[in-house]
Write a protein that binds this DNA or RNA. Structure first.
Length: 366
DNA sequence: AATTCGATCAACCGCTCACCG
DNA sequence: TCGGTGAGCGGTTGATCGAAT
């Protein structure tokens, strides 16, 4: 923020900390329907008391339907180690080579497991004093790759690129040049002739297309995580955001503008995006069928499935509070449960296109 | 059973970059 | 060219959980 802009999260009245299932649902539903062309405006339009940054992080790191959950495979760990040796702490670039994994996740794995494995010396320095903050190794860390089979996980790696077309790896364009092809060939996944090197280069930002990023696959890889689903009646209703009774004046205060120009959510449950953002939404409404199945399942998982009018979000001093009726019934984190046992893997087995990808990936040793 | 301690990971913070007027 | 703005990246923090004592 070198330019004097106040942190978005410093705004009064915005929630911080862990996300509630309701917030997750609201974010998912909104992105499913309208995409995320404008993160800053998104929370307001979605009726979330979060800053756009927080929403983006939550979506990318946790809610994206194409995320791969569970432990890292040995191959993935090896890939991380090798890539880190070449790229340093360029987590986003490393993540680009590990479809379904997020930079944050990779960063955590590196800091908790792989760093110690690769650099015992560093471990001695770092171990014990957990929160000793020193500019972490960074690119300067030698990190001599010495992959040692460890992870006992056997999760299949499907070698699918992130289906979220919105996920750009903005400055990854230098990667191939920096690495050199010889080095790239060291990486198992990169040996794959089908490996999409575009993942390492600047991807032309595409306008958000929910059908592509969430529901309908547009590439063989994307198809593996977001298979087409049978059309369901009432999908649009499903995607209607439940009304949330947020003090609209709050947004005016937060935005510092005449917040009256924007309404959060219409009484009918139809989000009313700001006029200024009228370009982004609506197109998504055409997705309909797509893979709203996963959203529906998620809502059911959350106990939020039902007529929109059933939504009764109590509003506390800080905004909406937990749903009193459904939340207690939830076991642990339903969102996590959903994704861990979620439909994506199951659908992988069902969709021929996905199966093909999985098969080819398996043949390639993934 | 209670407490302590370390590991893990979701989330936040600060910064840089890219884009646009 | 410059300044403002939003998005994204990397580092760090803090809550939580499980193992050890």
């Amino acid at each position: 923020m070198g330019k004097g802009r106040a942190p978005c999260c410093a705004k009064v009245g915005l929630n911080k900390g862990s996300w509630t299932p309701e917030e997750d649902m609201r974010l998912i539903a909104y992105i499913q329907k309208y995409g995320h062309a404008n993160w800053r405006a998104l929370p307001k339009q979605a009726g979330l008391l979060r800053c756009g940054k927080s929403c983006r992080l939550r979506w990318i790191n946790y809610l994206r339907p194409d995320l791969k959950r569970g432990n890292f495979t040995a191959e993935e760990e090896e890939t991380i180690i090798k890539l880190h040796g070449m790229l340093g702490n360029k987590w986003s670039k490393i993540a680009a080579c590990l479809p379904g994994r997020t930079d944050n996740e990779i960063k955590n794995v590196w800091n908790t497991h792989l760093k110690k494995r690769v650099s015992p010396a560093g471990e001695e320095r770092g171990a014990g004093s957990k929160k000793k903050k020193k500019k972490a190794a960074g690119a300067g860390e030698p990190a001599a790759p010495s992959p040692s089979p460890s992870s006992s996980t056997t999760t299949a790696t499907t070698n699918c690129s992130s289906g979220d077309s919105g996920e750009q790896q903005s400055d990854a364009s230098k990667v191939p040049d920096e690495l050199g092809l010889e080095e790239l060939e060291m990486i198992p996944m990169l040996d794959d002739p089908a490996f999409d090197f575009d993942m390492l280069v600047d991807a032309a930002p595409e306008p958000y297309c929910p059908a592509a990023s969430v529901s309908v696959p547009t590439s063989p890889c994307a198809s593996s995580t977001s298979p087409p689903a049978p059309a369901r009646p009432g999908v649009d209703e499903l995607l209607d955001l439940p009304e949330i009774d947020i003090d609209h004046e709050l947004w005016s205060i937060i935005d510092g503008d005449g917040g009256g120009a924007c309404t959060v959510v219409s009484a009918a449950g139809t989000p009313a995006p700001c006029q200024s953002n009228a370009t982004e939404p609506n197109a998504a409404s055409t997705t309909s069928q797509g893979a709203e199945w996963w959203l529906e399942d998620l809502e059911k998982e959350l106990g939020l499935w039902g007529p929109v009018e059933d939504y009764q979000y109590p509003v506390g001093p800080q905004g909406p509070i937990a749903h009193p009726g459904t939340l207690p019934a939830m076991v642990d984190d339903p969102v996590s449960c959903y994704f861990q046992a979620g439909p994506a893997p199951a659908m992988l087995q069902q969709d021929p296109a996905c199966s093909a990808v999985v098969t080819s990936s398996n043949q390639l040793g993934f």
